[in-house]
Structures are given as structure tokens and as C-alpha cells.
């Protein structure tokens, strides 16, 4: 497998986010309200998206490493479908323009 190519779980894909100052974040009754300055778009997201976004670094990270960060912070099990679920959430964040994939 070439470097950067996703395996069947997509674990080789790298994800990152823009600098924290590009987002304004407020709590709204347990939901998270975001204003993305570069796009001018507003988002309302619910758990676990804010936690995943907070765990993302501005430097590209492998999916497995990011899952490790979340497992440490939230006492997650890293087996089973965890990788696939994390990838689905990250891809949703990418589609919203709140996360990016490395080239």
C-alpha cells in the first residue's frame, strides 16, 4: 500500500482542521454553535462532533492516532466499529468545511 492511501478502514487518511481562531464557538443548551469565519457559515453540531473537532490538530493526523487521542480523553474502546464511526464523523466534518483531509 502506498503512503497516504487508505486501507479498508480508511485509517491511513490524514485529517486536520484550520487554526482555532477561525471558529467562534458557543454552547447552546448542550448543542455547539459554530461560526466558521473563512466561509461565513453557521453550524449547530451535537456530540460527538464537537469533541472530535476539539481533538483534531492543525497538523494532518492519521485516523488511528486521532482515535488514540479520543480514547485517552473519553475512555473509548478502540475496537469494533470505532474506526469506521470516527471516519464517518470526520467525513461529515469535512463536508461541512470544518475539517480537511491532507492531499
Amino acid at each position: 500500500m502506498q503512503q497516504g492511501e487508505a486501507d479498508s478502514s480508511g485509517s491511513a487518511r490524514h485529517y486536520y482542521r484550520d487554526a482555532p481562531e477561525t471558529l467562534i464557538e458557543h454552547d447552546l443548551d448542550g448543542l455547539t454553535l459554530l461560526f466558521h469565519r473563512p466561509s461565513g457559515q453557521t453550524h449547530i453540531i451535537d456530540s460527538p462532533m464537537p469533541e472530535i473537532l476539539a481533538a483534531l490538530s492543525c497538523e494532518p493526523q492519521e485516523l488511528r492516532a486521532l482515535l488514540g487521542v479520543l480514547a485517552d480523553r473519553y475512555d473509548l474502546a478502540v475496537d469494533g466499529d470505532a474506526m469506521q464511526e470516527l471516519k464517518a464523523h470526520l467525513d461529515a466534518l469535512v463536508s461541512l468545511g470544518l475539517a480537511r483531509t491532507a492531499p
Binding site: 467562534i24 458557543h26 447552546l28 443548551d29 454553535l33 469565519r37 461565513g40 453557521t42 449547530i44
Partner: peptide
């Protein structure tokens, strides 16, 4: 009505929320 629902419904009820950008976001929050 929860704050999230109120925020969403008021963005729909505002004609200049998008045009005001960050200023409108902060005011509505």
C-alpha cells in the same frame, strides 16, 4: 423552545443574518 431551535428558526426569520456575518452571529447568539 430550546436555544438551538430558537437560533435556527430566527436565522430563517432574518433577512440579513447571512449578510451581517460574524456580527449577526454574535447578536443572534
Amino acid at each position: 423552545v430550546g436555544q438551538g431551535e430558537a437560533f435556527m428558526r430566527l436565522t430563517q426569520a432574518s433577512t440579513n443574518y447571512v449578510a451581517l456575518g460574524e456580527q449577526g452571529f454574535q447578536a443572534l447568539h
